[in-house]
Amino acid sequence: MNNPHRPLDAASDVVLFDMFGVIARHQSEAGKERLAALAGGPAPAFWDAYWGLRQPYDRGDVNGVAYWKRVADALGTAFDEARVARLIEADLASWSAVDDTMVTLVEELTAAGQPVALLSNIPEELAAHYEERHSWLKHFQVCAFSCRIGHAKPEPGAYRWCLEALGAEPGRVLFVDDREENIRAAEAVGVRGHLFTTPARLREVLRLSA
Rank of each mutant, 00 (worst) to 15 (best):
P7G: 08
P7D: 06
L8A: 03
V14W: 08
M19N: 12
M19R: 11
I23T: 02
A24T: 08
H26Q: 06
S28C: 00
A30E: 10
K32G: 11
E33V: 15
E33C: 15
R34L: 01
A36D: 11
A37V: 13
L38F: 15
A39H: 11
P42M: 04
A43T: 09
W47P: 04
Y50K: 04
G52D: 05
G52P: 12
L53P: 08
D58R: 07
R59K: 14
R59Y: 08
G60S: 07
G60R: 09
N63I: 05
G64H: 06
V65T: 12
W68S: 02
A72H: 02
A72Y: 02
E81K: 13
A82S: 07
V84T: 04
A85N: 11
A93K: 15
S94M: 08
D100L: 09
D100R: 14
M102A: 08
T104E: 14
L105S: 05
V106D: 11
G113T: 00
Q114E: 05
P115L: 00
P115I: 01
A117F: 04
L118T: 09
S120L: 08
I122F: 15
E124W: 10
A127D: 00
A128N: 00
Y130E: 03
E131V: 07
E131I: 03
E132A: 15
R133F: 10
H134W: 09
H134V: 05
L137Q: 09
K138D: 14
F140Q: 01
C143E: 05
C143V: 06
A144W: 13
F145I: 07
F145S: 10
S146Q: 15
C147P: 14
C147T: 14
R148C: 13
R148G: 13
A152M: 06
K153G: 06
P156A: 07
G157L: 10
Y159H: 08
Y159S: 03
W161G: 05
W161A: 03
P170F: 10
L174K: 09
V176H: 02
D177M: 01
E180Y: 14
E180A: 11
E181M: 11
N182A: 04
I183K: 13
R184M: 04
A186I: 11
V189F: 13
V189Q: 07
G190I: 00
G190P: 00
G193W: 08
R201T: 02
R203A: 10
R203N: 09
E204T: 01
S209D: 12
A210Y: 13
